[in-house]
Design a protein around this nucleic acid. Structure first.
Length: 583
RNA sequence: GCCGACGUAGCUCAGGGGUAGAGCGGCGGUUUUGUAAACCGCGGGUCGGGGGUUCAAAUCCCUCCGUCGGCUCCA
C-alpha cells in the first residue's frame, strides 16, 4: 500500500516470465556466490519478482550489477526450463544433501498428497510448482532493483532473509517504460515535493512520525477542511470536538485496550488515574451520544469531527505523510436505527464519491469486506448489514469487489480505493458498520413503541486522514495543485521598480476578491522570478511592465506557459470561475 | 521492532586519520531588467548525539537517535 504501484492491468504472461526470472536470479546468485547460499522462495509479484536468500556475508549493493549481468548471460544462453515430477523422499534427500533448511521447510509445509515437481534451468534446479516461460530467452529484459530484509514467511519470529527485488519484461523497451514509470513516481514523491514546496516537515528533535504543517501546507489543509465542512453541513452532520486524552476506563469499555493496545501510546498517570491519548475518535462521540437519553426522533445523529489521533507505529514503518504516528481524520459517527442503516449508508457513499471526484479521483473501486472468523454478533445481523452495503453500492451504480472475511470484528465495511494520475491505487475512504460498540457502551434509543433499542453505528472517514490524503494528493498532482487548492494561486510580478506600486494594488485587489495572491517585489530579473514561481508550481503569474501599467492591464502567464494580456477584471472573473468549478 | 544502506551549511552534494569545501538559497551592494538562473561582496557547520582508539577523528571502533529500501498491519 505504501509505494507499490499495484498495477493490475499487466498481461498475465508476465507472471510466468517473472517467475522464470526469479529462478534465473537464484541461478546467477549460486553461480557467483556458491552453493552454500541458502535459498528460500522466489515468486513473481505484480510489478516484478524477488528471491529470498541467506548469504554470509550479506549482499551489498555492488553485488546487484554483477548478479544482473550474470542473469543477462543466462538469458542470452537461451536455456530451456524443464519441469519434472519428483517424489517426496527424493526431494527431501536432495535438499538435505545440499543443506537447504528453507527448502526443507517448504517441503514439510506441502500437503502429503500434493504432487511435487522440480524445475531446472541451466544448471539450477529448484523445487517449484511451475508456471514458467519456455526458455530463459523469453525473459527478455531484467533489472535488479534493490536488496531488502524480509522475515522467513513474513513472520518476525523467523530468521531474517535477504531479499533481492527485480523486474522483468519481454523486451527492453517495455522494461525501459517501466523504469521510466518508477522514475516518474520518484519525481512525484511527496516527501521531496513537500520539501521543495515548503508544505510540512518532520523534526527529529520532536519525534518521528509527527507532522508540522508549514504555512503553505496549512493553507492547503484549511481549504480542504473548509470544503469538507461545507459538505458536512449540507448533509446534516453536527460538528463536535472531543478531548485528545480520555480516562483509560473508556478504552476498556470500548475494547480498544483489548484489541488495539499495540496501536496505542502508553498511559499517563494523573492524580492516581490513568489516561490514554486517543487512537480513535469513536469513544468520544459515543460519550456524546450517551450524554442524554435518545429518542428515535433524534436519529440519525451524525457527529463529525476532524479528530486528531495518535497511534503507535513501529519506527521502521513510518513513511512521510503516508504512515505517521499522529494524524487527523475527517471522522464521523452516525447513530441510527436499524431501518436507517440502508439510506445512511447510501448517502455516506454518495458523499464520499462526490468528495473524491472534487479532488479529481475519478477512477474509484469499491470493496466490501464481510464477516471475519472472529466477528462478534449473530450471523443474521451481519448478513443484513452486508446486504445493506451491497445495495448501497448498486444504488451508486458502481461495481464492487468482495473481500471475504476482511471485515472488522465489529462489523462489515466498505473501502473505497482510488487510482491516482499514474495508476497507483490508494485506500482513502472507509465506511464501517458497527453493532459492537453501541452494545459495549450500552447505547439505546427509545423507539416509537416506547421501548429501548440499541442503535447501529456507522464509522466513516472520507479523505481518511489529512496527512495521508495530502501525501496522496501531492503525488496525484505532482505538486501542481489545481487552482482552488494551490497555496499560492497568483503571484504578481512587476518587471522593474517603477511598476511595484501598480503591482501592489493588483495584488490587493486579488486578495480582496478572496484569492491567495502574493507580490514578488524582489530585486531579481523577470526570468528569475518566473523560474522561481514556476518551480513553486504557482497556477498564475501576472507580469506587469511598462505597457501593462500604461494600458491598465495584466499579462497573465499560466502554469503551462501560455500568456495573455487582459484587464484585471477579466482575470478575476476567470479565476473565480476556475475556483468555483474546482477545475 | 528486525535486516541492510545512509546522516557533512537552510537545500543538493563533494571530501574518508593531519587547520571543514562547492553550487543554490540567505544577507549587503551594483544593476531597473519583458516570460525558466544578472554581477560583485559577506556571512553561515561542536561533519546526527554520546563514548572509545590515536600525538591527532568528519574520517576508524562501540552505542544511541533519525532517514531511506523492505518484512507485518492499518488512515
Amino acid at each position: 500500500m505504501l509505494k507499490n504501484p499495484a498495477v493490475n492491468d499487466q498481461p498475465l504472461e508476465l507472471g510466468p516470465l517473472r517467475h522464470t526470472a526469479a529462478h534465473l536470479l537464484a541461478h546467477a546468485v549460486v553461480d557467483l556466490f556458491g552453493e552454500d547460499v541458502k535459498l528460500a522462495i522466489g515468486p513473481a509479484t505484480e510489478t516484478g519478482f524477488y528471491y529470498d536468500f541467506v548469504k554470509e556475508p550479506p549482499f551489498v549493493p555492488d553485488d546487484l550489477p554483477r548478479v544482473e549481468s550474470r542473469m543477462r548471460e543466462l538469458i542470452a544462453a537461451d536455456l530451456r526450463m524443464r519441469g519434472e515430477a519428483i517424489d517426496r523422499p527424493s526431494a527431501e534427500a536432495y535438499y538435505r544433501d545440499r543443506q537447504q533448511p528453507f527448502k526443507l521447510d517448504i517441503l514439510y509445509g506441502i500437503a502429503p498428497d500434493e504432487p511435487l515437481s522440480m524445475y531446472t534451468i541451466g544448471t539450477f534446479t529448484d523445487l517449484c510448482r511451475g508456471g514458467h516461460v519456455r526458455s530463459s530467452a523469453d525473459v527478455g529484459a531484467v533489472k535488479l532493483l534493490s536488496i531488502a530484509g524480509a522475515y522467513w514467511r513474513g513472520d518476525e519470529r523467523n530468521p531474517m532473509l535477504q531479499r533481492i527485488y527485480g523486474t522483468a519484461f519481454p523486451s527492453q523497451a517495455e522494461l525501459d517504460a517501466h523504469l521510466q514509470h518508477l522514475a516518474e513516481a520518484e519525481k512525484r514523491d511527496h516527501r521531496r515535493l513537500a520539501k521543495e514546496l515548503d508544505l510540512y516537515s518532520i523534526q527529529e528533535e520532536a519525534g518521528p512520525g509527527l507532522i508540522f504543517w508549514h504555512p503553505k501546507g496549512g493553507r492547503l489543509r484549511a481549504v480542504v477542511e473548509d470544503f469538507l465542512r461545507g459538505e458536512l453541513r449540507r448533509r446534516g452532520y453536527e460538528a463536535v470536538y472531543t478531548p485528545h486524552m480520555l480516562h483509560e476506563d473508556v478504552f476498556n469499555t470500548s475494547g480498544h485496550l483489548q484489541s488495539f493496545a499495540d496501536g496505542m501510546f502508553g498511559p499517563m498517570e494523573v492524580e492516581n488515574q490513568r489516561y490514554r491519548v486517543k487512537p480513535m475518535n469513536c469513544p468520544g462521540h459515543i460519550l456524546i451520544y450517551k450524554s442524554q437519553p435518545r429518542s428515535y426522533r433524534d436519529l440519525p445523529l451524525r457527529l463529525s469531527e476532524f479528530g486528531t489521533v495518535y497511534r503507535f507505529e513501529r519506527s521502521g514503518t513510518l513513511h512521510g505523510l503516508l504512515r505517521v504516528r499522529g494524524f487527523t481524520q475527517d471522522d464521523a459517527h452516525l447513530f441510527c436505527t436499524p431501518d436507517q442503516l440502508q439510506p445512511e449508508f447510501e448517502s455516506t457513499l454518495d458523499s464520499a464519491l462526490s468528495i473524491l471526484r472534487a479532488f479529481q479521483f475519478t477512477d474509484v473501486r469499491l470493496y466490501i469486506s464481510t464477516r471475519p472468523d472472529e466477528g462478534l454478533g449473530d450471523e443474521d445481523t451481519w448478513k443484513r448489514a452486508t446486504e445493506a452495503i451491497r445495495r448501497a453500492c448498486e444504488h451508486a451504480g458502481l461495481p464492487y469487489g468482495i473481500d471475504e472475511g476482511g471485515g472488522t470484528f465489529y462489523g462489515p465495511k466498505l473501502d473505497i480505493k482510488v487510482r491516482d494520475a499514474i495508476g497507483r491505487e490508494w485506500q482513502l475512504s472507509t465506511v464501517q458498520v458497527d453493532y459492537v460498540l453501541p452494545e459495549r457502551f450500552g447505547l439505546a434509543f427509545t423507539g416509537p413503541d416506547g421501548v429501548e433499542h440499541p442503535p447501529v453505528m456507522i464509522h466513516r472517514v472520507l479523505v481518511g486522514s489529512f496527512e495521508r490524503f495530502f501525501g496522496v494528493l501531492i503525488e496525484h498532482f505532482a505538486g501542481a495543485f489545481p487552482t482552488w487548492l494551490a497555496p499560492v494561486q497568483v503571484v504578481v510580478v512587476p518587471i522593474a521598480e517603477d511598476q511595484i506600486a501598480f503591482a501592489r494594488s493588483v495584488r490587493e485587489q486579488l486578495s480582496e476578491a478572496g484569492f491567495r495572491a502574493e507580490l514578488d517585489d524582489s530585486n531579481e530579473r523577470l526570468q528569475k522570478k518566473i523560474r522561481n514561481h514556476q518551480l513553486q508550481k504557482v497556477p498564475y503569474m501576472l507580469v506587469i511592465g511598462k505597457s501593462e501599467v500604461q494600458a491598465g492591464q495584466v499579462n497573465v502567464r499560466s502554469r503551462s506557459g501560455e500568456q495573455r494580456a487582459m484587464p484585471l477584471d477579466a482575470f478575476v472573473q476567470q479565476l473565480g470561475r476556475e475556483v468555483s468549478e474546482r477545475a
